[in-house]
Simulated assay, not measured.
Amino acid sequence: MATDPTPTHGGRPDLPGRANRLGPSGEVPRRIEVDKESARQSLAGLVLTIVELLRQLMERQALRRIDQGGLSDEQIEKLGLTLMALEENMTELREHFGLTEEDLNLDLGPLGPLLPRD
Protein backbone atom coordinates (compact mmCIF):
# COMPACT_ATOMS: atom_id res chain seq x y z
CA MET A 1 0.00 0.00 0.00
CA ALA A 2 1.54 3.30 -1.12
CA THR A 3 1.22 6.34 1.07
CA ASP A 4 1.08 9.92 -0.11
CA PRO A 5 4.38 11.61 0.90
CA THR A 6 2.75 15.07 0.90
CA PRO A 7 2.56 16.41 4.48
CA THR A 8 -0.89 17.43 5.61
CA HIS A 9 -2.44 19.57 8.31
CA GLY A 10 -6.04 18.81 9.11
CA GLY A 11 -6.38 16.55 6.07
CA ARG A 12 -5.28 19.23 3.61
CA PRO A 13 -2.02 19.00 1.64
CA ASP A 14 0.64 21.56 2.42
CA LEU A 15 1.36 24.11 -0.26
CA PRO A 16 4.87 25.50 -0.80
CA GLY A 17 5.39 28.53 1.41
CA ARG A 18 2.13 27.89 3.24
CA ALA A 19 3.76 28.23 6.66
CA ASN A 20 4.54 31.86 5.89
CA ARG A 21 0.83 32.63 5.49
CA LEU A 22 -0.57 30.83 8.51
CA GLY A 23 -2.53 32.78 11.08
CA PRO A 24 -2.12 32.37 14.86
CA SER A 25 -4.50 29.40 14.92
CA GLY A 26 -2.61 27.61 12.13
CA GLU A 27 -5.27 28.47 9.54
CA VAL A 28 -4.72 30.35 6.33
CA PRO A 29 -6.30 33.81 6.72
CA ARG A 30 -9.28 34.36 4.44
CA ARG A 31 -8.52 38.08 3.98
CA ILE A 32 -5.59 40.36 4.28
CA GLU A 33 -6.46 43.50 6.18
CA VAL A 34 -5.25 46.56 4.27
CA ASP A 35 -5.93 50.18 5.07
CA LYS A 36 -7.52 51.46 1.86
CA GLU A 37 -6.21 55.01 2.24
CA SER A 38 -2.67 53.83 2.99
CA ALA A 39 -2.69 51.56 -0.06
CA ARG A 40 -4.03 54.40 -2.22
CA GLN A 41 -1.34 56.77 -0.93
CA SER A 42 1.44 54.22 -1.51
CA LEU A 43 0.29 53.43 -5.03
CA ALA A 44 -0.02 57.13 -5.89
CA GLY A 45 3.49 57.73 -4.53
CA LEU A 46 4.94 54.90 -6.61
CA VAL A 47 3.22 56.03 -9.81
CA LEU A 48 4.21 59.66 -9.28
CA THR A 49 7.80 58.62 -8.55
CA ILE A 50 7.99 56.86 -11.91
CA VAL A 51 6.37 59.79 -13.71
CA GLU A 52 8.75 62.25 -12.02
CA LEU A 53 11.76 60.13 -12.97
CA LEU A 54 10.62 60.08 -16.61
CA ARG A 55 9.90 63.83 -16.53
CA GLN A 56 13.42 64.57 -15.28
CA LEU A 57 14.97 62.26 -17.88
CA MET A 58 13.00 63.99 -20.64
CA GLU A 59 14.12 67.38 -19.34
CA ARG A 60 17.79 66.34 -19.37
CA GLN A 61 17.47 64.94 -22.88
CA ALA A 62 15.83 68.17 -24.05
CA LEU A 63 18.68 70.22 -22.55
CA ARG A 64 21.23 68.01 -24.33
CA ARG A 65 19.46 68.53 -27.65
CA ILE A 66 19.36 72.28 -27.06
CA ASP A 67 23.09 72.33 -26.18
CA GLN A 68 23.89 70.37 -29.36
CA GLY A 69 22.12 73.06 -31.40
CA GLY A 70 19.79 70.65 -33.16
CA LEU A 71 16.58 72.59 -32.41
CA SER A 72 15.09 75.74 -33.84
CA ASP A 73 14.11 78.65 -31.59
CA GLU A 74 10.45 77.71 -32.06
CA GLN A 75 11.11 74.09 -31.03
CA ILE A 76 13.07 75.25 -27.99
CA GLU A 77 10.18 77.52 -26.96
CA LYS A 78 7.64 74.72 -27.40
CA LEU A 79 9.81 72.29 -25.47
CA GLY A 80 10.28 74.74 -22.62
CA LEU A 81 6.54 75.40 -22.32
CA THR A 82 5.76 71.68 -22.39
CA LEU A 83 8.32 70.89 -19.68
CA MET A 84 7.01 73.74 -17.51
CA ALA A 85 3.44 72.46 -17.90
CA LEU A 86 4.56 68.94 -16.94
CA GLU A 87 6.28 70.27 -13.83
CA GLU A 88 3.15 72.22 -12.85
CA ASN A 89 1.00 69.11 -13.34
CA MET A 90 3.35 67.08 -11.16
CA THR A 91 3.13 69.73 -8.43
CA GLU A 92 -0.68 69.62 -8.59
CA LEU A 93 -0.74 65.82 -8.43
CA ARG A 94 1.67 65.74 -5.48
CA GLU A 95 -0.50 68.26 -3.64
CA HIS A 96 -3.67 66.31 -4.48
CA PHE A 97 -2.23 63.16 -2.90
CA GLY A 98 -0.54 65.01 -0.04
CA LEU A 99 2.99 64.13 -1.16
CA THR A 100 6.18 66.19 -1.15
CA GLU A 101 9.07 66.08 -3.61
CA GLU A 102 11.06 64.19 -0.99
CA ASP A 103 8.30 61.56 -0.69
CA LEU A 104 8.93 60.66 -4.33
CA ASN A 105 12.69 60.39 -3.94
CA LEU A 106 13.24 56.75 -3.05
CA ASP A 107 16.35 55.91 -1.04
CA LEU A 108 18.30 53.25 -2.93
CA GLY A 109 20.65 52.55 -0.03
CA PRO A 110 24.29 52.55 -1.10
CA LEU A 111 23.32 53.92 -4.53
CA GLY A 112 21.84 57.05 -2.98
CA PRO A 113 18.54 58.70 -3.87
CA LEU A 114 16.64 57.75 -7.02
CA LEU A 115 16.06 61.33 -8.11
CA PRO A 116 18.97 63.76 -8.18
CA ARG A 117 18.67 66.72 -5.87
CA ASP A 118 19.12 69.90 -7.88
Rank of each mutant, 00 (worst) to 15 (best):
R31N: 02
A39F: 14
S38F: 04
V28I: 15
E33Q: 13
A44W: 06
I50E: 15
L22P: 01
E52L: 09
I32Y: 09
A44N: 02
R30L: 13
A39T: 07
E59H: 12
S42F: 11
L57T: 07
L46Y: 07
K36F: 13
A44M: 03
L53P: 00
M58Q: 13
K36M: 03
S38W: 02
L53S: 04
I50Y: 12
R65Q: 08
V28Q: 08
L57K: 13
E33F: 09
L57S: 11
R55G: 09
V28H: 00
E37I: 06
R30W: 11
R55N: 15
E37S: 10
I32W: 10
V51C: 05
L22S: 05
R64K: 08
R31F: 15
I66R: 12
A62M: 08
V34E: 15
R65N: 04
E33V: 14
E27K: 14
L54Q: 15
R21T: 13
P29Y: 02
V34W: 04
D67Q: 04
S42A: 15
T49S: 15
L43W: 11
R31C: 09
D35A: 13
L43P: 02
G69M: 02
E52A: 09
V47G: 00
L54F: 06
E33I: 14
R60I: 04
Q41S: 09
Q41H: 07
V47H: 05
E52W: 04
E33Y: 04
A62Y: 11
S25N: 13
Q56R: 15
L46Q: 06
V34M: 14
I66D: 05
S42K: 08
E33S: 15
Q61A: 11
P29F: 02
Q68H: 06
L48K: 06
R64G: 00
R60W: 01
L63M: 05
S38R: 12
D67L: 08
R55Y: 10
R60P: 00
R55E: 10
L48I: 02
P24I: 10
R60S: 07
I50L: 12
L46V: 00
V34K: 09
L63K: 01
R30Y: 02
V28E: 15
G45I: 01
I32H: 09
G69C: 03
L48M: 06
L22I: 07
R64V: 12
R31D: 08
L53H: 05
P29T: 03
L43D: 08
R60V: 04
V28R: 09
L46C: 06
M58A: 11
R30C: 04
S38P: 02
R21M: 12
L53G: 00
A39I: 11
R40M: 09
A44G: 05
M58N: 10
S25Q: 14
D35L: 08
Q41I: 04
L48Q: 10
T49H: 07
E59S: 11
